[in-house]
Design a protein around this nucleic acid. Structure first.
Length: 323
DNA sequence: AAGACTCGCAACCGCCGAGCA
DNA sequence: CTGCTCGGCGGTTGCGAGTCT
């Protein structure tokens, strides 16, 4: 099968930004007649445009149900979570965000969320902690210059040593977050991919499980204190939990999650508990490249900790936090 | 004040799969 | 089965606005 241009090259069709007049014509035609055949629409609407261009203009800009304005925190988190599961499947991500277009989400991810994840020491492509030292060195330079870090202090630190420390710090935090995430993901009913959880939860002998999970969360809480407390505060940026107030915020969030979770377990209610939202997505069931259309099983598995050993991660991975 | 540079976003390009004759 | 057309998708580009020097 050969490749065909969507519009004939010799037609000398207009390209570039749409004018208000063109918008009005397209809007007027589609609201009156709908859009069954995009190739015919430009001629019928009196536009010197390619059908594809009309479709794009309609779906990305003129459609009446399009949501304008900034992305909310909730939307950001949905995008990050879904991107960690689906990869660059922007249209599938957009399907979970009413009023947002795939193009808009793609632009938003590439311009804002990508940088945000990098600041958190997370690879925006794989959603795993950054392990590339060159990249970390690069990032450390960027952060120290952009955040007005004390350069006299920084000049005394070898960039490689700094990057190594940063890597260790990020990895440590990431492991803990990975644990927490693994515990919370199945019970997050806001996650569109885990809607089966409460049904399974209600019908399983789940009380033992929930008690274990709650205990694990409290255990993680103490791990967080021990690990983060020992990690040197390398800079003043917000790239990780690097100061005491952030740490205590994180702890109190964990505690409230424990409370909520215990409440859920006692009542077996279907209250929405948002466990995912406070945590960056560090877990990806498979790499985005592999994730394409694979079904992601989000049902709860009591052997949560054993699930952490996927993707070739061996015991040594956990040795420094589970000595 | 002005030129250089960076950033964000709308729009385009090229590929692919579905559907149809 | 083959060839053709169309719609959809993801990657890329180019331009305008904002910021820096």
């Amino acid at each position: 099968m050969g490749r065909y241009p969507c519009c004939k090259v010799d037609e000398d069709l207009k390209k570039g930004p749409w004018t208000n007049e063109e918008d009005e014509k397209l809007m007027d035609y589609i609201t009156k007649n709908g859009h069954t055949n995009w190739q015919l629409i430009p001629k019928k609407a009196g536009l010197n445009r390619c059908g594809k261009s009309c479709r794009l203009r309609w779906t990305n800009y003129l459609r009446p149900d399009i949501k304008r304005g900034e992305f909310s925190i909730e939307e950001e988190e949905i995008i990050i979570n879904l991107h960690s599961l689906l990869g660059n499947k922007w249209s599938r991500i957009a399907a979970h965000l009413p009023g947002r277009t795939d193009n808009e989400i793609k632009n938003f991810y590439n311009t804002h969320l990508r940088k945000k994840l990098l600041r958190l020491g997370i690879d925006p492509r794989t959603h795993k902690p950054i392990s590339d030292l060159n990249l970390l060195i690069n990032l450390s330079h960027q952060f120290t210059s952009k955040h007005n870090i004390n350069h006299h202090l920084m000049n005394n630190i070898n960039p490689l040593a700094y990057a190594l420390k940063l890597q260790a710090q990020v990895t440590e935090i990431a492991k803990i977050q990975q644990l927490v995430h693994s515990l919370f993901t199945p019970i997050n009913t806001n996650n569109p991919l885990s809607t089966n959880f409460h049904e399974n939860f209600a019908t399983s002998s789940s009380h033992v499980i929930t008690n274990n999970v709650a205990t694990n969360i409290q255990f993680l809480n103490s791990l967080l204190v021990n690990s983060c407390g020992n990690i040197p505060n390398l800079d003043n940026s917000t790239s990780c939990i690097s100061n005491s107030s952030e740490l205590s915020n994180y702890q109190s969030e964990l505690n409230s999650k424990v409370d909520n979770f215990e409440g859920l377990s006692n009542n077996s209610s279907k209250t929405q508990v948002d466990y995912n939202n406070s945590l960056p997505s560090l877990i990806t069931p498979s790499s985005p490249d592999q994730a394409n259309d694979a079904h992601v099983n989000q049902d709860y598995d009591p052997n949560t900790l054993s699930q952490l050993n996927h993707e070739g991660i061996d015991d040594s991975f956990w040795n420094d936090i589970f000595p």
